[in-house]
Each structure stands twice: as structure tokens, then as C-alpha cells.
């Protein structure tokens, strides 16, 4: 493990070096000599000798690799040079000036995105094909497909121009933060929701979740992953509920009834009002859904859902 960490860190270092070389190369590829930028195009008249003197002063007459190492040395020691646009202002100060704003905006956006997308993604993954699932899927598809610079423009049109609620730009008041944070959060929200939804949907079909459900644990307990794993750890994989000891407790000490006390099968789908009783269509949100009410033939209309398979599985016992 330690060796692995060292190796990965070393690889990261190589990547940083490669990035620095690429950045330097691209900068020197930029059209126009740094001299032209410094002087403005043909506005300042100076002699060849003066040009050479300036070049020597800035180290531009050195070979490229020397320039690169000087640049890296300055970079590492925090000297990023001075801005050509805002004359005389060190670039480092400009970056430090912008950093708190960028950080604030992004932290708020991230918090909002996580706060919205995790619960929605989990719920959508649990209740697949429900209206909420569709809404979440449509919303995240739209969020991913919308260019954020366009979304920003549209929000300005709506909230600044038409409604006049929020300022179109500037961070002078707290209101100014709302639009940028929303725009930044939208894209992340869309991606997080998608990931949460698909991973939840995948986990929900796993054996230990089925075990936890068949034991009649409340859905809340099932979806909180560590609890479900804890529960599953008490049983061998695939161990059937009716072979459980007569009286069991879940990890909170709630009594679980033995499986043979489940209601008769014809009452499937009717909440039997057995508090904490294992499965059988009552209490547990998931098993109740799907094939309900079961018609006389016992055949469900429509595509079998996961809960149908849970019910079928239970019928086999």
C-alpha cells in the first residue's frame, strides 16, 4: 500500500512537470514576441541596440530551456511576474485577489449541488420509473446538455431584465451571488443526480439489500449503506428468512418476527398492519409496490419490476 502511494505521488509529480513544460511551450508559441506585447505594436520607437538590451535584461536571449528553468524557479518561489494588462500589478496578487471569490462561489455551488442531488438521486434510484425518477432523469439530462454560459444569459434575462429581482452582474450585495451560484450548481447537480441515481439503482438489486428487506427492516435502514451491510453481515448470503431463529432483533434492538408469522399469501399487497413484521407486502415500502393489486390470475400486467421479483422470490419460499 505504501509503495503504491509513493508510486502514485511520483506519477503525479511527472504529470505536473509535463504540464509545466506544455504550458511553457504554449506560451512561447503564442504569436508575437513578448517584446511586441511589452512595447505595443510599433508605438514606441527604439533602436535595435535598445531592443537587445531589453531582451538581455529579461533573459529572452537565453536558450529556451534556460528560460524554462528560470520560469519554473520564479513560479516555485511565488514570483509570477507582472501583468501586461494592468501595468505593474503582480500576477500573484491578481490571482490571490480573485481566489476568495472563486472559492466562495464554488463552495456554495458544491454544497447546493450535493444537498439537492444526493437525496433526489437516492429517491429516484429507489423508486425507478416513478414520476420523481422521470423528473430527476429529465432534469439531469437537461442540466448536462445546457451550456452554462447560455443558462447564465437566460437567467439574467429572466431575473434581472424581466423581473428585476437580481443584479445582472457584480457582487456588491449578497444578491449578486445568487445567479452565479445557481449556474455553477446546475451542471454539478445534474451530474451528481445521475451518478447517485444509477449507483443506487444498482445497489438496490444486490443480495444484501434483498436480505435486509426480506427481514423487514425499515426502508430507511436499508438504504443507509453501512447499516445494510451490517445487517447483511449477520447472515450468510442467500440465507432464507424462514430459517432465521424464532426471535431476532435488528441492530437497534427492534424485535423481528419469524417469517412464518407472515400473513398468508393471498393478502399480498394488503398492508397487514403487522408492526415491524418481516416483509410480506406490509410495512416495507418496496415490496408493496409493483404488482398491486394482484389480479385473480396472479399475473401482473405490465413489465415485471424489481419488487415483483422480490414477491416472486418470497412466493417460492
Amino acid at each position: 500500500m505504501f509503495g503504491y502511494i509513493v508510486r502514485r505521488l511520483f506519477e503525479g509529480l511527472i504529470v505536473i512537470i509535463l504540464i509545466s513544460i506544455a504550458t511553457f511551450a504554449i506560451m512561447r508559441l503564442m504569436p508575437g514576441d513578448p517584446m511586441d506585447m511589452l512595447l505595443g505594436e510599433g508605438q514606441v520607437r527604439i533602436s535595435k541596440e535598445q531592443m537587445e538590451a531589453i531582451r538581455a535584461r529579461w533573459g529572452l536571449d537565453e536558450p529556451y530551456y534556460v528560460q524554462y528553468f528560470v520560469w519554473v524557479k520564479n513560479f516555485v518561489t511565488g514570483n509570477l511576474g507582472e501583468s501586461l494588462v494592468r501595468q505593474g500589478v503582480p500576477v500573484r496578487d491578481m490571482i490571490l485577489e480573485a481566489m476568495p471569490v472563486t472559492a466562495t462561489l464554488n463552495i456554495y455551488a458544491l454544497l447546493i449541488a450535493l444537498g439537492v442531488s444526493i437525496p433526489i438521486g437516492i429517491l429516484a434510484g429507489m423508486r425507478r420509473n416513478s414520476p420523481l425518477d422521470y423528473a430527476a432523469s429529465v432534469g439531469s439530462a437537461l442540466g448536462i446538455a445546457t451550456p452554462n454560459f447560455w443558462l447564465a444569459l437566460m437567467l439574467i434575462v429572466i431575473f434581472s431584465l424581466m423581473l428585476g429581482w437580481l443584479p445582472p452582474f457584480g457582487l456588491r450585495s449578497a444578491k449578486g451571488y445568487i445567479l452565479p451560484v445557481i449556474v455553477l450548481a446546475t451542471e454539478q447537480m445534474a451530474i451528481f443526480t445521475r451518478v447517485m441515481r444509477s449507483s443506487t439503482a444498482e445497489v438496490v438489486t444486490q443480495d444484501y439489500v434483498r436480505t435486509a428487506r426480506s427481514k423487514g427492516l425499515p426502508e430507511r435502514t436499508v438504504i443507509t449503506p453501512r447499516r445494510a451491510q451490517f445487517v447483511a453481515a449477520h447472515h450468510h448470503r442467500g440465507r432464507l428468512p424462514h430459517r432465521l431463529p424464532a426471535q431476532r432483533h435488528d441492530h437497534r434492538g427492534n424485535r423481528l418476527r419469524p417469517a412464518r408469522h407472515r400473513p398468508p399469501l393471498h393478502r399480498f399487497g394488503v398492508p397487514p398492519g403487522l408492526p415491524g413484521g418481516p416483509v410480506a407486502g406490509g410495512g416495507v415500502g418496496r415490496a408493496r409496490r409493483g404488482c398491486q393489486p394482484p389480479d385473480r390470475s396472479g399475473v401482473c400486467s405490465g413489465r415485471p419490476t424489481h419488487s415483483d421479483r422480490v414477491s416472486q422470490w418470497l412466493l417460492l419460499l
Partner: peptide
């Protein structure tokens, strides 16, 4: 143009 981009990307 924004609507067209969204439709195409979608």
C-alpha cells in the same frame, strides 16, 4: 441558438 444547442446535445 442556446435552445438549438440544448436540443442537439440532448
Amino acid at each position: 441558438p442556446g435552445i438549438m444547442i440544448v436540443i442537439t446535445v440532448l
